[in-house]
């Protein structure tokens, strides 16, 4: 995964709170292998009418090149399905800006190079207002935790370890394997102090 520091792109507003992962990608699309791409399933049932045609009044449909979403609180709540992040990433979204995120979603996002940028309510209102009449250019800086959209220049909150991961494009498995000696030592110690923690089926 490639790391990144700054993103310049197009932001659109999706002023809805509590967009859960079932809405981000309905369960019926989750058996698709990743290699086929999850972009078409992003917000599938919100974007399409009952016949499956794209709704012309939905922001993502009118601005398919958007790479930044400004949306309501508690974005990505619900299930742990990483497919919700795949759908965003495969549709070209790099940053989601909201007042709060589901805990598991936010972790999944960072693991896939997608920035969950948490902003306070006042900044959020200013960003939504600036997007009320359509998309705007935006610059997002992970290092400084700042973003600029038209006249709105605000900071966002991101865990330090997550910022580092995004910037470096780090893969946790590689990092962890460097600690394999510590893990082995821990396992031996635990097997001695808590032998019951190992499953021992009855005969």
């Amino acid at each position: 995964m490639a790391g990144w520091r700054t993103h310049r792109g197009t932001a659109i507003g999706l002023p809805v709170a509590n967009i859960d992962t079932d809405q981000l990608i309905p369960a019926r699309f989750m058996s698709v292998p990743r290699i086929e791409g999850y972009g078409p399933y992003l917000l599938h049932d919100m974007r399409r009418d009952a016949t499956g045609s794209l709704r012309r009044d939905f922001p993502l449909n009118t601005h398919p090149k958007a790479s930044v979403l400004v949306t309501g609180r508690n974005f990505g709540s619900g299930s742990s399905r990483e497919a919700a992040v795949y759908a965003l990433v495969d549709a070209g979204i790099r940053v989601v800006i909201a007042p709060s995120f589901g805990d598991i979603f936010a972790a999944n996002a960072v693991n896939n190079g997608l920035l969950p940028a948490k902003v306070d309510e006042k900044s959020h209102a200013a960003l939504e207002a600036a997007l009320a009449n359509g998309p705007q250019d935006i610059t997002v800086d992970v290092v400084d935790r700042r973003l600029a959209l038209d006249e709105v220049k605000v900071g966002f909150v991101l865990d330090d370890s997550w910022a580092e991961k995004l910037i470096n494009g780090w893969d946790d498995i590689d990092l962890t394997r460097k600690h394999s000696a510590a893990i082995t030592a821990f396992k031996i110690s635990r097997s001695q102090t808590a032998a019951w923690a190992w499953p021992r089926p009855e005969d």
Partner: peptide, 22 residues
Amino acid sequence: FGIGATEVAHVLATQTVWQRKP
């Protein structure tokens, strides 16, 4: 606690998980 697919792969490969204490 529930984890996403990248974390599942990490647990499969290392039997550990990175986590900030809530």
